[in-house]
Nucleic acid binder design. Structure first.
Lengths: 232, 232
DNA sequence: CGAACAAGTCAACAAGTGTTCACTGAAAGT
DNA sequence: ACTTTCAGTGAACACTTGTTGACTTGTTCG
């Protein structure tokens, strides 16, 4: 009895040391809470890798991997759906970060498409857990999570549409058609990402194949755009 | 005790009557087995409608909805994954049926795209359960189910590529690029389908919006294809 | 210093899970 | 008519599940 109590405390200690002893910043209480929150979110992302999907993992599993007792979960989230929504925010934060960075580093328009595709796919591989979560929950999660994801993707599409607007070749596009085209690009990129997620990370040949395919598809889209005429 | 036994038999009887008394064809034994098998598959599809996904429903739930005791499940499938694979086959059988029908009824090339899109989306709405299953399991199911779905989609893409080949405007396409383009079309159609699945069936305005969007996207793709040049 | 707060613990709960077992009774085969 | 086959039954198994309540114990605040 006393023994298992100490067990719990030791886990916490370990966690503290892991994060380094430099964490002497103010608000020890809040900081610790935040760390456990992250531990729970990371645990969920970890459990999702491979076979399982978010909707099929249990609160208890998440708690266990996070090194915390099930009851403690409720100090941070009201339930699994709540955790899911937090993960959606988290995942798209990384995505928006990437897009902001990409925007601030203007690429030469010569092979802009190839570079953009490469940048994105590289990024998605580096943040695999987040993108895997999105891919898996986009259609099969609870409706709250699903809607949150869809909202974010719409937002992303609009962002891309805004980035596309200034292009000379796309002068004849009205707002709706621009979003239509951006949606096509986003869908294509997502599809490629989802394919890559299912490929062994070592299989660079297959990854390159998917890569090239996505490039070609987006070039095709731009080719079509150049010939497009929006009717008022 | 005796009471609950009778309960089970009554459920079976009810099922038999539902299906009509005309089922006097030979092989009563096999026919009944097949009916239960279907009942199990239908039960799974039914449970999937709305919030839940296949990976989050239980063998016992499926058995209960099918009006059968859990142990009986094993007379038909070795487990849930087996059922999932059967559902993949089932779902794509309907899809291939549709494509065969579409091919045998040649459309005027004038508004061929609009008609094809309309036909497909109508069909997917009429077979909602199957398409909902595919959409949900495409990325989040067990790897066996996921791979089966991916295989079928690749097959579908190849079929479409073959259908596209004879078009005069696509003369300059080599095989790889033709599949690339077909993949783009398939992705677009799937994305539209998945969007429609999340819309209230009554909301015809929203359905029409998604509809028009998909049409435009595919027209854009064909426009791009007309300008495409495959390099050897 | 002492009180209040709150992130963590343990223990228990009722329900649900997959799977195995010996069984029954109607259809199929002889 | 007699036996075999087998899709179905019910009961039991050893777990896992979400959630609650009473608790401890370090941090924060007055």
């Amino acid at each position: 009895m006393g023994c298992s109590r100490y067990n719990g405390l030791m886990r916490l200690r370990k966690k503290t040391e892991e994060s380094g002893a430099d964490a002497t910043g103010g608000g020890l209480r809040d900081e610790r809470k935040l760390r456990t929150r992250r531990a729970l979110m990371d645990a969920a992302l970890e459990l999702i890798q491979g076979e399982r999907s978010f909707s099929s993992i249990s609160l208890r599993e998440v708690a266990k991997v996070a090194g915390v007792v099930p009851a403690a979960f409720y100090r941070h989230f009201s339930g699994m759906e709540d955790l899911g929504l937090a993960l959606v925010d988290d995942s798209f934060r990384t995505l928006h970060t990437m897009m902001r960075e990409a925007r601030s580093a203007p690429l030469p328009p010569s092979n802009l498409i190839a570079n953009s595709v490469a940048t994105f796919l590289k990024y998605s591989q580096d943040h695999r857990p987040h993108f895997e979560f999105i891919a898996k929950e986009r259609y099969s999660g609870s409706s709250a999570v699903r809607l949150a994801i869809r909202r974010e993707i719409r937002l992303w599409t609009s962002e891309l549409a805004a980035d596309l607007a200034p292009f000379p070749k796309l002068k004849s596009f009205n707002g709706d058609d621009l979003r239509m085209m951006a949606g096509l690009v986003v869908n294509t990129v997502i599809a490629a990402t989802e394919l890559i997620l299912d490929v062994d990370t070592k299989d660079t040949a297959e990854v390159a194949r998917i890569h090239r395919n996505a490039e070609k598809q987006i070039m095709l889209i731009f080719l079509g755009a150049a010939a497009w005429k929006s009717q008022a």
